[in-house]
Design a protein around this nucleic acid. Structure first.
Length: 588
RNA sequence: UGGGGAGUCGCCAAGUUGGUUAAGGCACUGGGUUUUGAUCCCAGCAUCCGAAGGUUCGAGUCCUUCCUCCCCAGCCA
């Protein structure tokens, strides 16, 4: 009947095909691994690498991870898992001005929360680009000595001007052909702090007329006096991403270096650099290869770092973990599950085509996972009182509600029925629209897990707003008793005993943006913010919910999936966040 | 109007070297089950693969031309 639908089966994609081909052809079979990252000589002394492939997830610790990163994480770690390889957790921390320890902590948390780890073949594979600064420096000197790099002293403005344009070739720097010894001496002075920030820069010497702008002598090492979160003040020069990343991959014996499309133009430099370092005997073949895939675009969401920061700093949301934010920290508070994200990642696939995934796909994945895993509970979110006039006062009767309709082994729990109950305001209509089959004057409806009742009247306040609904119950119709369904009713509404309820704070979240493409065209994405993205209410919950622990997830029957907020819940007084509603085929 | 990529059903996405009727998922539409208008089950859903030509017995898969979209001119990653 149910649960066999969720198994996550990996679909074919171009990256898997490349990996399968490489494994079949033994492309990386000769690699050796000495137990940790290192240069050619070090690795050569190692054993054949037990990992069939090595991938890596290389975030810069300068922000929080979001749903887009989840795609990359699932891809890289998932590939390693599926092909007997390992995925390195690597912080690409080459720019000390932007990076902080706080971010590395939140990132490792998020990756582990998603269900992945970096312990494999007996060791941890948590690495930092900054741990390779010594090697990078060595590689830079080797490049200078082989005539493949030089120290330029043009200003940033001059460099930009001489880079040319998309259609015009650039001009050689006047310092381009200075002797290698001179560049070497200058580079060492840069390292030794003898020059001001920005006054000198190390550039690769390739071709100022290259049609690919990234090959027009790209900057590879800059002077930047900043305290690094990891290396402190040891260095005042830092490598650029362009230079550092290929080296990081090579030192770690990465086989498949998977990144997003915008790095495609960078690949020729990636290969050029590594080949030069092989010539310098610093690295050995086979070299890692870079492959690019399309980053995730999700409707009704913004994923750009700049916009996320703006939303947080300008208090459009409560913080980086606001449940409305697409950050992993936010999604977690919202109640989204790691398994749901993994399902999502497989479901959307991997390709090179720019695409926009409909947000409902993500929600569906969460529903699919939660439907199987979440126990059911009863919650009245917008209460009005229902009085059963023919039911004795001071009487209480046990009704039995299954904890999970798909898993009878989880048993049932007792919910007490009394004369006065809370029911959902929308479950009563004085003048029902066509097709409405809940409570109406004179109509019958079943109190879920209890009796069938007949509406006998209702009360309103001065504004005509319904305050109390009256009914009478039919004694022989109690759920679970013989003949209880002799009277068929289509409507089935939930309820909570007034005397046995837990009045709790519940946050009803909706999407943060009301437009599928926030800020599309000339509009400002901030103007597309949904003013009703959260509604905080006091709901009447069945008493058992009072004991819920932070991050416990439930399906509130007929409403949706909710989670006890991991931040604001207190023992004995949990607060709930709505993760996602149930599907609703009833259009009102 | 330089370079690099991408265009297969509303949204994703398979489609190995050209070979019967173009996978699958989501959405949608019918029908069934159901004490959640949920779930689940069944059925339907591209004569067509950005366009136009061409090669071939045969093309989404090869060739030509064209169109559209994305990325690149940080001492960011």
């Amino acid at each position: 009947m149910s649960s066999t639908k969720t198994p996550i089966l990996a679909a074919s994609n171009f990256i898997r095909q490349i990996i399968e081909r490489d494994i079949e052809q033994g492309t990386y079979a000769t690699r050796r691994w000495a137990g940790s990252p290192g240069d050619a000589a070090y690795q050569a002394a190692g054993l054949p690498d037990p990992a069939k492939i090595r991938t890596r997830f290389p975030p810069e610790p300068n922000g929080y991870l979001h749903i887009g990163h989840a795609k990359s994480i699932c891809l890289n770690f998932g590939l390693a898992r599926d092909y007997d390889g390992v995925c390195h957790m690597r912080f690409d921390d080459t720019n000390p001005e932007k990076e902080e320890q706080e971010y590395v902590d939140s990132i490792t948390d998020a990756v582990q929360w998603l269900g992945f780890g970096w312990e494999a073949f007996g060791t941890s594979h948590l690495y930092y680009a900054s741990n390779y600064f010594d090697f990078m420096y060595r590689a830079a000197e080797a490049l200078i000595q082989s005539g493949h790099a030089y120290v330029d002293q043009q200003t940033a403005e001059e460099m930009r001007a001489n880079r040319g344009t998309l259609t015009e070739a650039g001009k050689d720097s006047p310092w381009r052909n200075r002797p290698a010894e001179e560049s070497l001496a200058l580079f060492r002075e840069m390292r030794d702090g003898k020059h001001a920030d920005g006054s000198l820069i190390l550039r690769a010497k390739i071709d100022m007329a290259a049609p690919n702008i990234n090959l027009r002598d790209p900057a590879i090492y800059r002077i930047k006096r900043a305290t690094h979160h990891n290396t402190g003040d040891k260095w005042c020069i830092y490598p650029m991403y362009t230079f550092a990343h290929p080296i990081e991959d090579a030192l770690e014996q990465i086989t498949h270096s998977i990144c997003t499309l915008e790095f495609e133009d960078q690949r020729p430099f990636y290969d050029w650099l590594l080949e030069r370092l092989v010539e310098a005997a610093l690295l050995a073949q086979p070299l890692p290869k870079q492959y690019e895939f399309a980053r995730l675009n999700l409707t009704y969401v913004v994923l750009s770092k700049r916009k996320l920061i703006e939303l947080v700093e300008n208090h459009h949301v409560s913080g980086w973990d606001d449940p409305r934010l697409p950050t992993l920290a936010g999604a977690r508070r919202r109640g989204y599950t790691a398994e749901g994200f993994r399902l999502f990642a497989e479901r959307i696939g991997v390709s090179k085509a720019d695409s926009w995934i409909e947000y409902t796909i993500l929600e569906d994945c969460m529903r699919e996972v939660l439907n199987i895993s979440a126990e059911r509970r009863i919650a009245v979110l917008d209460p009005i009182k229902l009085v059963i006039n023919n039911y004795p006062e001071n009487q209480s009767e046990d009704c039995f509600a299954p904890n999970h309709p798909l898993k009878p082994e989880l048993g049932k729990r007792v919910v007490p029925l009394t004369r006065e109950l809370w029911i959902e305001r929308e479950d009563f209509e004085e003048t029902p629209p066509k097709g409405y089959f809940r409570l109406t004057p004179g109509g019958l409806v079943r109190l879920r897990y209890g009796y069938v009742v007949k509406c006998t009247g209702f009360e309103t306040d001065a504004d005509g707003k319904i305050t109390v609904v009256h009914c009478e119950y039919l004694p022989d119709t109690k759920s679970g008793t013989p003949g209880s369904d002799s009277i068929k009713v289509k409507g089935n509404i939930h309820w909570v005993s007034v005397n046995h309820a837990y009045a709790a704070e519940v946050r009803l979240y909706d999407r943060l943006f009301k437009e599928a493409h926030p800020g599309a065209g000339d509009s400002n994405y901030l103007d597309d913010i949904n003013p009703n993205s959260v509604k905080t209410i006091i709901a009447q919950l069945e008493l058992s919910l009072k004991e819920a622990h932070a991050e416990d997830r439930f399906q509130f029957e007929r409403h949706g999936y909710f989670v006890a907020d991991r931040k604001d819940s207190v023992a004995g007084r949990p607060v709930f966040n709505r993760t996602v509603t149930l599907r609703d085929a009833w259009q009102k």
